[in-house]
């Protein structure tokens, strides 16, 4: 039996600031659907991606209500990826780790998914991953 493939994404960007988060989420989904395990090390601002108190808002410029705007918060995408990454029915497993120190200094303790960890988790991910993408902030 072939060894399971896994990829690791190290993310640094906070929600809503850059396209890198979107691309990283798309990569994670596509990999999980292909049966590839995905490890995420959320570092610095990226630990806010799953902050559970994020709320959607209306958009007065477009004249849309909250419902009409349909603007998902990153916590919703993170939670959906965690659900998708259950390793069932041929899908890959998602292990999302938030850097604990980065969580502390931002106060984003309540999370919609993932687990608290440290750079030691990132080190372990590096050891077992086919490839590692460091998607750093710019």
């Amino acid at each position: 039996m072939a060894e399971r493939k896994s990829i690791t994404l190290a993310l640094m960007d906070p929600p809503y600031e850059t396209a890198r988060v979107t691309t990283a989420f798309r990569l994670a989904e596509a990999a999980l659907r292909k049966g590839i395990d995905v490890n995420v090390f959320a570092y610095e601002g990226a630990v806010a991606l799953g902050f559970a108190q994020q709320k959607p808002h209306a958009n007065s410029v477009k004249g849309t209500t909250v419902e009409e705007e349909g603007h998902p918060n990153t916590r919703a995408w993170l939670a959906a990826l965690v659900k998708l990454g259950d390793g069932q029915e041929g899908r890959g497993r998602l292990d999302w780790v938030n850097c604990g120190l980065c969580v502390d200094e931002r106060g984003v303790f309540e999370q919609a998914g993932g687990r608290r960890g440290s750079p030691a988790d990132f080190h372990a991910f590096i050891q077992r991953s086919t490839n590692v993408l460091t998607i750093g902030t710019r």
């Binding site: 640094m12 990132f122 080190h123």
Partner: peptide, 13 residues
């Protein structure tokens, strides 16, 4: 942030 992380990764082996 990058140098700090590299230091911790090096210390981790």
């Amino acid at each position: 942030q990058a140098l700090w992380l590299v230091h911790t990764l090096q210390k981790a082996g």
